[in-house]
Design a protein around this nucleic acid. Structure first.
Lengths: 202, 202
DNA sequence: TGTACATCAGTGAACGCGCGTTCACTGATGTAC
DNA sequence: TGTACATCAGTGAACGCGCGTTCACTGATGTAC
């Protein structure tokens, strides 16, 4: 899938350091994808390195341990989450893309929290710190989309972020295609317009 | 924690078969608890058998493999979910219990889907079949609590089940105690009264 | 600018531990007479 | 009911594979002169 030949070779000297930096980048990218697809324990260092077009021996020139890589991979995946949000013009469109069959069927390039959320609490503190920052950022974006009174909007934003994530997890876990579609549709309906839905001042 | 001494010894003969059945039961219970606490890959057969007060060698007199046990453990955990629902008089009280700090802090005895939902899709077909049945049952109970037009109530029930699950996952994954409380509170507010909240006919 | 040396990313073999699984054995259960 | 035999749940040692990690080595990068 990934070519093992570097595609640059330019920029005068110190090509190797630059290449090493690109390799490191490719390792993190491969890990972010593979962890989401198969879970932290479902992929080995050898598979990650192969995914980056390298052999396993060189891994420890870049990372202190598999756990160390995991923290970076999670941070990277959460960054992708933020980019997808930034690319969405409205909550409605974001939720429709998030709760789409395409997203459900592509764990490897999808939401990091939906793919690994259940396992995050069992990971090291670095992973949890990265996750918390990612959640805060995502909630803040949704809060701005929702608008209105700040405290109320934030409450709705928290429920929306959690709600779409849970919906995706459920749609992926279920055995039956029709039920899965129904779950996604229900989520889009409930969370797609949190601004006017969930009207409840308590 | 669990005494290794059997606490029965009665009922005429064939005590051993009965004891074996109890042992099997204890193994499934220990697995259901430990899997939820540490994940499918986080506990070994030896730890499960120790949790049941036995040694690992006898495991394969009861189950064909660790995966075979996983399917039964998941089914058992989902059954506990159903029991907790049955013990709740209303959606409001169920959601308050589900999104309580106590539930968040006790993975081992809590919701099976929140604890392992992300990993379910990677498990065998038996696990997924059990999960799907469990989800259907849970959704149906919530639908009855919500009441009203059937299609609309079902849509809200699906979103509620997914929503509270996602909320719990998020509250557990996050690093910051205050944020975790805030997430739980937002979930209780959004999903606690799905009958009057999420008012949205599409 | 050219040459000799040092650095270090990457390789592939090897290590060692953990864990799922197997197995010979034990001794109480359960059965045949 | 009592006795001899068969069954089988449980034990603990052992096996073997996978995987995280280490290491000696290579050869190009990068540097000192």
């Amino acid at each position: 899938m990934l070519s093992s030949k570097p595609a640059h070779e330019g920029d005068r000297m110190r090509v190797s350091r630059q290449q090493a930096a690109e390799h490191r980048e490719r390792i993190v990218a491969a890990a972010a994808r593979l962890f989401r697809e198969k879970g932290f324990d479902g992929v080995g260092v050898d598979a990650i390195m192969a995914g980056a077009g390298l052999t396993h021996g060189g891994f420890y020139r870049h990372f202190p341990s598999k756990d160390g890589l995991a923290a970076e991979a999670v941070a990277r995946g959460l960054g992708e989450n933020a980019e997808r949000q930034a690319a969405s013009p409205s909550l409605q469109e974001f939720v429709c893309a998030y709760l789409s069959p395409a997203h459900r069927d592509n764990r490897g390039s999808g939401c990091m929290i939906a793919a690994l959320g259940c396992d995050m609490a069992r990971q090291g503190p670095e992973v949890q710190r990265a996750l918390t920052a990612g959640v805060r950022a995502q909630v803040e974006t949704v809060r701005r989309w929702i608008g209105g009174r700040r405290a109320e909007a934030r409450r709705r934003a928290l429920a929306t972020v959690a709600g779409v994530m849970g919906t995706l997890v459920l749609a992926r876990a279920v055995d039956d295609a029709a039920l899965s579609e129904e779950i996604l549709a229900a989520g889009r309906s409930a969370f797609g317009g949190a601004a006017d839905a969930m009207r409840r001042t308590e």
